[in-house]
Design a protein around this nucleic acid. Sequence first.
DNA 1: GTGAAAGCGCTAACAC
DNA 2: GTGTTAGCGCTTTCAC
Lengths: 331, 331
Amino acid sequence: MAATIRDVAQASGVHVSTVSRTFSAPHLVNTETRNRVLAAAEDLGYRPNRAARALTTGRTHNLGLIVADIANPFFSHLIKGAQAHARTRDYHVFVADTDEDPQVEEELIQTLAKQVDGVLLCSPRLSNRVIEKLREDVPFVVVNRRMKGMSNVLMDVGSGAREAIGHLVSLGHRRIALLAGPAGSWTSREITDAAHAVPGIDLTVFGPNSPTEHGGLALAEAVASADVTGVLAYNDLMAIGLVEGLTALGVEVPGRVSVVGIDDIVAGRVSRPKLTTVAMPAEAAGRTAVDLLLQLVGAGETATPALATLATNLIIRDSTGPVRRELRTDP
Amino acid sequence: MAATIRDVAQASGVHVSTVSRTFSAPHLVNTETRNRVLAAAEDLGYRPNRAARALTTGRTHNLGLIVADIANPFFSHLIKGAQAHARTRDYHVFVADTDEDPQVEEELIQTLAKQVDGVLLCSPRLSNRVIEKLREDVPFVVVNRRMKGMSNVLMDVGSGAREAIGHLVSLGHRRIALLAGPAGSWTSREITDAAHAVPGIDLTVFGPNSPTEHGGLALAEAVASADVTGVLAYNDLMAIGLVEGLTALGVEVPGRVSVVGIDDIVAGRVSRPKLTTVAMPAEAAGRTAVDLLLQLVGAGETATPALATLATNLIIRDSTGPVRRELRTDP
DNA sequence: GTGAAAGCGCTAACAC
DNA sequence: GTGTTAGCGCTTTCAC
């Protein structure tokens, strides 16, 4: 067993409380004594046990981070940002993956609640009602879902979607398909609402869908036989899957159908045609979310929820092009 | 504050120890009593505090998982596999990212050591010596590094590299470049050794390099001006970056240079030309590593280190092709 | 089968 | 500036 505070106390000839103080409130202890304690600690390889500390302080210095799919590049970047930032504030982070299952999501939050000072809930699939309830157990920051009275980190995906569709429209597209994301996704709803609000287009919504390459692939036939010339997908993974499927069916992209994704993952940049997409600042979102969460945790009961909205922007590449003359609807 | 074991005891009219037993050794308590306790617990929303439990049992039911770069798809799949598997065994996992910095790696292990029952060290950049020392603090499973006396999960990347080079040779390539990975990487060493052992080729090694798209991109000029027709890269990210760079320089892939990656990430499958690569079973490695680690943790002092070797396999796609007649070295 | 009591490693009043 | 003491939530002998 590793050295405890008691070993250090004994070795340096002081009481345990003095040792405790040298670590948690160094200014309260005599320089000389402190040095002696530090030396002994160093010597014994002593490291404070955070779990034991948590028991008395009520602060674990741990954060929970819950995402739908760790392997999705959007989330892995978010995790990276959150983790790196948390580390600079001396926090460790538990990462958990719900596999898109709301049930798992709820369970995870509950078991994690006791071991963390707060949780980052990313793109939840849970209902607002359940989240409100869970909130009594542990402070939250919710990423990619607008929830009144809670701290939120949002990406302005609605305006991203508008930009994307505007881009399609400017290329002459009028009959547009929207590939929705999973049920329960706020982002998917935002995109859908934004798309519906664009005037002068004829919108067909497919979904809900699995937000994966496979989900996109599975829609290829439906899209090919639908009477559309432009597509906006819930994310790049789906867009990539769709392009694969379309290509396999002999439907040219962007020759016959233009495709826009959302996220800006590496795969989209290197796929052919290079994917036009709405860039989402995933890593920044992770950092910001940690900031808001720590702010919440620090403030305790008096905490005021904050709202951060991050900009998105359209990146035009090669998967979108002008609508073919013979497919055009209006002059 | 949430309900504690004491609240449940009071509510169900038994002593705390009985409540404790209903959760940790249910068979030792009368069915009727147990039901009463369970009902009260349910009612109060009681959940055992794992940190407090850890203090007495010495088991935190937490695992640490340390990788070089969370956003690298190879690692994110590994994390996904490990996390999912850990969850089925009622373990939570801390994920941490070293950003390829050995210093950070060491520090991370030390601070994590006290809060976890064991750590999964993936593709460490630390020296064997330091790892051996750290091992006294906490049980390890090391992924992608052969270390005597410790549990290891290895991928047979040496044979993968041999296969890849064999494939290049069969296409007529003789002058081959190897893009090494970061310093301290066992995998990089294995690949290099395997490549050096292939007879009849003329090998040029570039590196060490940053194992990222950017790292590959940065090598494009050097590769273009080197007298080689085939390339094996440390990973797909580098291979993709290299292909980008080469293409920008007007060097055709696979027309003038054939490129093979390692990992089999999505981006490689969708990039053009589709990347020939050595598939690495990242998710399975994560699961296996958790198994070995839990085995180690369960066995305590008497633990016998285990070794798991996972197969890799070459996936031939479009980034490799026959060497051009005029570039051929021998008949 | 259940209760009593000690203690895990640490912090936080409160004395001195 | 440092020691004393109680206690965080839980498990684990040991009695009964």
